[in-house]
Amino acid sequence: MIPLAPFLVVSAALVAIGVFGALTRRSALGILMSIELIINAAALNLVAFSQHIRTSDAESTAGQMFALFAMAIAAAAAAVGLSIVICIYRNSKTVNVDKIDLMRW
């Protein structure tokens, strides 16, 4: 069985890539995809820890549970986020967030 550390390394790499994407993508869709990557990394971490480190059998499923919940929440976030993207597109005919500076004072 593959030990814990390699999974953690992969997970860290995914988080870094996700953050990079979120910071650099011009399109709101790209940002959402990057966020999905970050959530995936977190879920992967949870499952890896759950399988390798546990104090009792009673909590043996905890990590997988949280991974499942994270997926559900990620799906919800994706749905709402994509709806917002559609709204933005309808209002300003673009999904490029650097064209949208309504938050500027």
Binding site: D98, D101, M103
Partner: peptide, 10 residues
């Protein structure tokens, strides 16, 4: 206050 989400995110 650029108003751009990216700057804030960074």
């Amino acid at each position: 206050q650029t108003g751009r989400v990216h700057n804030y995110l960074l």
